[in-house]
Structures are given as structure tokens and as C-alpha cells.
Amino acid sequence: MSSSASTKISSQKNNEVFRDCPCADFFDGRGCTVWASISKVIIMGGGADRFEVERVLAWAGFGEFRHVSGRLGVSDLFDQKRRTGVYVLSFRDGSYYVGKATDVTGRFRDHRDKKDPIEGMAFREVPAKLLDRVEQDSITALELLRVPLKNITSTRAGAASERLESAWATMDEIRRFSADRAWNDLSGNPLSDRDRRAKLHDRFYRLMQRPDVDEIIEAFALYLARCVPLPARTVLGRWVISALPGGYELSAIANLTIGWQWSAVAFEGPEGSMMQFYGRGSVLRRTFGRNLENLAGCDVYIASEVMGGTDQLRLVCRPAEARALLEKEPVVHALREVTLDLMQRPTPHAQHHCFDLADAILTRARSLPQPEFKPVLT
């Protein structure tokens, strides 16, 4: 692929089943089936109707919605010894609320006095020690279905800044990273684990035998330095890097995962190794045109992944072309928008983290000069 390669946008099939289901535990092993249903709603646009919500909740172990409009209490609906769990309230305006309780009947009385008129109530009995996790997974599932939620503090949108600040950064650092595309902080000492480092060292060794390994590490280092906030402080908790030569997916060479989603991938293309980055589509289109006709140096594809938002595009180029691509400020802006969204949740893939590869990439990233973004001609 030359730097003047034409940009093309390719759509994904609407019935694609995503490999990584963020609610797999929530759905008791049936997550991918329901995740496919959720993904159709997201890709096709719009929100789910009441039937779709009830179907997903039923798969997740919730009982059917009980009509509770006008009721003063719901004690007669629940056995006295089986009232601990997670509940979903439906309202006349089409919105929902997800909550947890050790006694759901008491919580209903609280909501009856404070919330808008309640129309229906679904309930899933859950052990007390799992209440927090199942409640959050239930919220995530309804968020992905794009239905209105009355929850404030537990939704990704409502608690994003609080989770980001408490997890790994101050709000001043987050604001600066969002506003100043040339700034990042690469200081810090990443965590290490001798046993886990040794476990994946063979894969790292095989990766280092590739003739193009320097270009691949350079491409990841550029991405880490310019698009991932505070990478030395967020590694392992918010992002991981996996070395995959000869692994379960033969086309993959290495991938960097933020939260639940791949965000930068090295893979084998028909004509050699390629890099793939995820960016915010609306940001790219504002600068490079609706069909991205002014974005040279990469191929562009519609992304079906949703954890970083549905407004994502995949930018694909050769590793050696990554520097030119990441010298475009709007491209860095688009990639940063996605990484900030993805970093709102911890990554569940720490067991796949290759410490040796992360060290090599961070070392290279720290040696890179401060970016001097070139003006974009449109």
C-alpha cells in the first residue's frame, strides 16, 4: 500500500457475532448469542423496543415484567426468602431503571415515592456478593440496547469522569490530554509479574525474530505515545498488549486491547504485515470529507466493535506508514476519542499481557520526539 492509496470504506455484515462479549458472565455462558442480538440493534441504528429488552433480560435470567402500575407494594409477588437480587423498572415514557436490593419489596416502595409512574418490574434473584457485578452488567446490556436509562451514577456516560479520575488520572490530566493533542505523560514504573512474564516470553521471542519487528514496535510506540493517555500508569489495569505469532488467530501478530476492545492491531495482510487503528468517524469526516476522500496513506473500514462507541472506523496501513498517519492531528484526535471511551472500564484480559513486549514498546515510545503536527490540507 503506497502513501497515496485510495481510501475505501467497507461495511461489516449485520449478523456478525462478536468474539468478545462484555456480558458473558452476566448471561451465564449464553452471552455471545445475546451479544449478537444486541449488536444488530446497535449496527442497524436506533434503540431496542420493549420486546427486545424483555428478550435480552429473559436470556439473562430475569423474570418477565410484572405490571405494577398503581400498586402500593409488591410483597405478594415475592417469596420472603427470595427477595435479594437485581431489578429493572420500566416507565410509561419508555425509560428504564436498574437497581439492586437485599429486599426488593422495600426498594419498590422507595421508588414508588420518588420516581415517575412505574409501569412494570422484572427481577432476577442474585446472591448478595454478586449484586454489584450483575447490576452493572445489566446496566451495560441496556445501554448497548440504546434504551433510555434513569440511572445516573452507574452508567458509562454518567460516571465516566468519576471513574477515570479515581482510576488513573486527575481531571486536569484528562482535560489536557483531550485538548492538547501533542501532550502525554509517559512517566511511571509499570507493574511486573515474573511468572506471567516468563509464561509468555516464548511468544515474545518468536515475535522478535520477524524481519519487520522494528517497524511493528515503532508503530505501536507511536500509537501508545500519541493516543493512549498516561500509558505507563494505565498498563495492565486499562490496557494490555498481546504477542500472538503462531497463536489461536494465525493472521494476528500482536494486539493492544484497551478495556474490552482491540484498539491497535498488527496482523498479516496479503502483502505483508499491516497495522490497524480505531478512530472516531465523525472527527475524521469533519476534516477529510464525508467519504474520507482527502485522507491518504491508509485504507478505512467501518468498525463493528461497539465498546468504544458505534461511531468508529478502522484505519489500516503498513507499519512503516504509521508515523506519517499519526503526524496528522485530526487522526490523533479521532484515535484519542476512542481510547478515552475505552479506558472508562478496566480490561479483563490481563492474563494475556506480554510484559516483555510492553517494555519494548514503552521504551521506544519514550525515545520518540514530541510530535509537531503538520497542517491538514482539505
Score class of each variant (00 low, 15 high):
R280K: 14
D311T: 08
D195M: 11
G120M: 07
V86G: 03
Y223S: 02
S161T: 11
A169W: 00
L377I: 11
A58Y: 03
R82K: 15
A36M: 10
T170R: 11
R364C: 13
N294A: 12
R146W: 03
L315D: 02
P211F: 03
E143S: 06
P348C: 07
E337G: 01
E293Y: 06
T84P: 03
E372H: 15
C317I: 05
G246N: 09
K40T: 12
G46Y: 09
F220L: 10
D20C: 06
R290F: 07
L295C: 05
F267R: 10
L284H: 05
E329V: 03
K100Y: 03
S367I: 00
Y96E: 07
M1Q: 07
A232F: 07
E305C: 01
A360R: 15
R92D: 14
A221G: 05
G289H: 13
S39V: 05
E119Q: 13
L200H: 14
L292G: 06
G246S: 10
A122K: 02
S251F: 08
G237Y: 06
A303K: 01
L130R: 15
K13F: 11
R233L: 13
R83G: 04
G158R: 04
R210D: 12
L144E: 09
H352R: 15
D113W: 03
E16T: 10
G31F: 02
P229H: 09
S6F: 07
G106W: 05
F177R: 00
D110Y: 08
D49S: 12
E162Q: 11
R197G: 01
I42M: 09
F27P: 00
S2H: 12
L236H: 04
G281M: 04
L377S: 11
D28T: 11
V213Y: 04
Q261G: 01
P245I: 08
R194N: 03
S37F: 12
R314A: 06
S10R: 13
P346N: 12
D76S: 14
R233M: 10
I43G: 02
A24C: 10
K115H: 14
G281P: 01
M121Y: 08
K115V: 00
V41M: 06
T234M: 08
E215K: 15
G297N: 04
V331C: 03
K328Y: 07
D180M: 04
L145F: 03
K40P: 01
R345Y: 09
A58C: 07
R176N: 03
P319F: 14
D113S: 15
A252D: 13
K129C: 03
H353C: 01
I174L: 15
T287S: 13
V134D: 02
A303C: 14
R30M: 12
A303L: 03
V332W: 01
V265I: 15
D180P: 02
F27I: 00
S138K: 00
K13T: 10
E119Y: 05
K114F: 00
Y301Q: 10
R146A: 08
A60Q: 06
D28V: 10
T347H: 04
W35F: 13
R92L: 10
F220G: 02
I38E: 04
D113H: 06
H111D: 02
P229V: 10
T257M: 12
P371K: 06
E337W: 00
S39K: 08
V376M: 10
